[in-house]
Amino acid sequence: MRGWLALWGQPSFPAAKGMIWMLLGPGQPGGELIRYVAACGTTGSTPGMASVDELNQLRELDGTARDRLFLQLMIRHHQGSLPMARFAALAAEHSAVRALAGRIAWDQAAEISRLAGLFRELGGGDG
């Protein structure tokens, strides 16, 4: 993705923060999309990102507790990426970008399933 942006002469991160750009797709935005954009607010951060405190908590834990927290944070992170990936899979202009976004959505969904399974095996319930 950075390679494409470099070839197009674009920065790796947009100058404007927030996810308002996702409302510019074809057609009326659906409920999931509107909720997602609202949740992102104006911080430029997607929902589900681990906070600095959570990452340091992860570093401090040991053993199964560390594994469980990792799985929880990663499931939440992946879930936060799905609306954006689904949106781009449908609405991106270039077919290569649509294809990549579709694959990201597919892979992240599959990984969420796997992470949730590992979390259950560690006695963490349904995550």
Partner: peptide, 9 residues
């Protein structure tokens, strides 16, 4: 010290 920091080029 923003909550979810990003480094931009």
């Amino acid at each position: 010290r923003k909550a979810s920091p990003t480094v931009r080029t």
